[in-house]
């Protein structure tokens, strides 16, 4: 080869490598497709969140391809393990999850925690609500507290999930903030929010700890009263319902739902997905789906999400230790 050819060749190689690295670099942050991993079965809460989010993203044109994979088992633990084990292959996978991931890794239900994954963003939230029948003698949460302090057995809390899970923990939180002993709380577990609500209405239980979303319909029809909710400020949909915060109790609890990525995803890609999830909330397609499902937006991207999770883990950890769920 002569000098001219050599120069051309090296220029070609240089150009080629430049182009290929930029292509590779762009491929790394290709967020045009998402493969949603759902730790539960079809038709459940996680499933609805993932599919709804995917639908909004697709309809608003922000996403070109959305696929969904259900993987239930171990209360969500199986999907987490899967994400970690096959991290290399999960380049475009986002796993949907919610508060139980924090609760369950605390109680050791599964050995991993949110730290083993890369939190992308929290997107929606459901706040806790305390509900009584319309003919109940309680009009004010503070009366409930007073009666509880007198005799905890007279004020039994019911909930649609098992002992030690969210409904129980939220009630315990509220009791603790009211300076009563959460350990004395008697929690009656039901198999699902519907049955717990039925028990409330039938007079079997006096007060129900559930999510705002579930209590909303009944509250609107007037059959039940929501005494208090766990958001910081009053919700648009419940302008007359006080929050525990405004009553002077330092309790803010949000059952968040959000997305996680595999631990090997680059930080840039995580940030890009986080931004995508935030941007879609501005679209009318999202609003339609959000209203359809009764979601409340609570956008928490990236490092803010991480900090939020850490705080929640700490708070819940203290509570669970106190209740005896953790040694």
């Amino acid at each position: 080869m002569n000098i001219k050819q050599l120069t051309l060749a090296s220029m070609a190689i240089g150009l080629l490598s430049f182009v290929s690295t930029s292509v590779v670099a762009n491929e790394k942050i290709d967020i045009k497709k998402i493969h949603f991993l759902i730790p539960g079965g079809p038709g459940g809460g996680w499933d609805g969140t993932a599919r709804g989010t995917g639908e909004a993203l697709m309809k608003s044109g922000k996403l070109e391809n959305a696929s969904y994979q259900n993987m239930s088992g171990g209360g969500g633990g199986k999907a987490i393990a899967y994400m970690i084990e096959t991290a290399e292959k999960q380049k475009n996978t986002l796993m949907v999850s919610s508060t139980p991931i924090v609760v369950r890794s605390l109680s050791g239900v599964f050995p991993q925690s949110f730290r083993d994954l890369k939190p992308v963003a929290g997107t929606i939230a459901d706040f806790g609500a305390f509900v009584v029948r319309k003919d109940s003698k309680y009009y004010d949460w503070r009366d409930v507290l007073a009666d509880f302090k007198q005799n905890p057995r007279k004020v039994k809390f019911s909930g649609g999930s098992s002992r030690g899970s969210l409904d129980h923990l939220v009630a315990a939180m509220a009791i603790k903030a009211g300076r009563a002993k959460p350990r004395k709380l008697v929690y009656v577990a039901y198999d699902g929010g519907g049955k717990a609500m039925a028990a409330l209405l039938s007079g079997e239980t006096a007060i129900l700890s559930t999510g705002v979303g579930e209590a909303l319909t009944m509250a609107k029809s007037g059959d039940v009263r929501i005494l208090a909710i766990t958001s910081k400020e009053r919700l648009k949909v419940l302008p007359d319902t006080p929050t525990l915060t405004e009553m002077g109790y330092n309790v803010v609890f949000a059952n968040w739902r959000g997305f996680f990525a595999a631990p090997t995803m680059s930080d840039e890609k995580v940030a890009a997905y986080a931004k995508l999830l935030g941007d879609v909330q501005e679209t009318p397609e999202w609003t339609e789906i959000q209203e359809r499902n009764g979601w409340v937006n609570m956008y928490n991207p990236d490092s803010e999400f991480y900090a939020f999770l850490e705080k929640q883990e700490k708070d819940l950890g203290v509570l669970m230790r106190e209740l005896g769920f953790l040694k």
Binding site: Y68, N70, T86, K89
Partner: peptide
């Protein structure tokens, strides 16, 4: 029906 069926890790 849109149900995901594993395409197999071999092809992964």
């Amino acid at each position: 029906l849109g149900i995901y069926l594993s395409p197999g890790d071999l092809w992964g």
